[in-house]
Design a protein around this nucleic acid. Sequence first.
DNA 1: CTCACTTTGTGCACCGGTTCACAAAAGGAC
DNA 2: GTCCTTTTGTGAACCGGTGCACAAAGTGAG
Lengths: 235, 235
Amino acid sequence: MIRRLSQARERGIPEATVARLPLYLRALNGMAERGLATVSSEDLAVAAGVNSAKLRKDLSHLGSYGTRGVGYDVEYLIYQISRELGLTQDWAVAIVGVGNLGRALANYGGFVSRGFRVAALLDADPDVVGDHIAGLNVEHIDELEAVIRRRGVSIVVLATPAAAAQQVADRVVAAGVTSILNFAPVVLSVPEGVDIRKVDLSIELQILAFHEQRKTDRMSGGPAMAEEWPEAVDL
Amino acid sequence: MIRRLSQARERGIPEATVARLPLYLRALNGMAERGLATVSSEDLAVAAGVNSAKLRKDLSHLGSYGTRGVGYDVEYLIYQISRELGLTQDWAVAIVGVGNLGRALANYGGFVSRGFRVAALLDADPDVVGDHIAGLNVEHIDELEAVIRRRGVSIVVLATPAAAAQQVADRVVAAGVTSILNFAPVVLSVPEGVDIRKVDLSIELQILAFHEQRKTDRMSGGPAMAEEWPEAVDL
DNA sequence: CTCACTTTGTGCACCGGTTCACAAAAGGAC
DNA sequence: GTCCTTTTGTGAACCGGTGCACAAAGTGAG
């Protein structure tokens, strides 16, 4: 039984699609600034660095917002994607850990831009507490639960040392937060229902190193030979 | 050099596996520090936050390094994964863009730890050039090609403003670099054969917001009831 | 109106990756 | 040696996502 209407829309936008929507949104904003009224899937796909069939399928998950023979209305699509991503509301974000990285995040412009507002900075170091960064007063980690409650924080960014991250995560979750962006190089364990996204600089570098090694190996002829001449001598 | 080629090992470790190897490596290092000699796939999987079948399949792509009934030798596995990732050699990394983020990256400890060495900091701003950060002298972007050549830089980290990123990327690629870690919120276009990894803070937040919205929608009132746009037929 | 052209939305085949479940291998007890 | 326990390595089913290719839907000209 196939339900038409927006059956695809309600339940379950594919995770891969969700991850690309912000990309489309950014490209669309650029186009809106340049005054474009409509855009074809082909052009938008190029701007976002994906292929056009994928883009159309992604957008079709939100609903049927294009016009055949014409394309998509830029402003309208911006609105729809923003709404889908929840950017039409205001999200209060707390950053825990005001070291180099936390400081950078607090000052990062694009961070605050759309729908997000850094509502609190917290740290355990008494030397840092009281500092003013990006227009905010750094508060002591003891205030964590109170700050989360008072300011309606719903997303927490962890920029603490690895050793402190799990402990802070536990407190944050206990305080009712269910969305965490983790920069600490540890695997956090959290209860069902809490979303964690992880950004790990050192892992990214290691992945690059793997491919880089492979490329230079190939140059120098070793493993490239092996590829063309599947060895009979096995281990 | 004579290579033993256990069937799966010859060229082509799945990308998803490569992305997890650093995770295993980190967990293994922790275990080595605590003095464990061997570890089962189950225990290592828990420490790395994956399921054990996946871990075994991942490791099997490197070769058959486990012992049935026993598990894996911690030190040996560390060595094998390090070698596979190319961490047994020394990678010279240049960071372009010494704003808040670039500074944070330069000082980030875990960054430098294993196999990676920040060999250069570059910026276009004359006020920043000449500063000493993390023991390095900030050089002018004009020196980019010379620095890359002289110091054998093979991985470049882009922490520039969005507007400058593509331009720098072009120069970096022209100078022979084929691995880029991009923090600027733009889609870079580079020739075939150049690997780019992208870290985008704002995208991560937007993905979290999507899920957070969905969770709170579910709490309040019905399942995202008719969140259609204001007008049913407009536009 | 019809015809030519553009561009969306999607059915379908395909592919990489995940998970299950189990045979094969290793070690220890006797 | 045999038997029992543990744990790896992997075949095979499954699943989510991608990309092709095309019918459907729209525009515009005549």
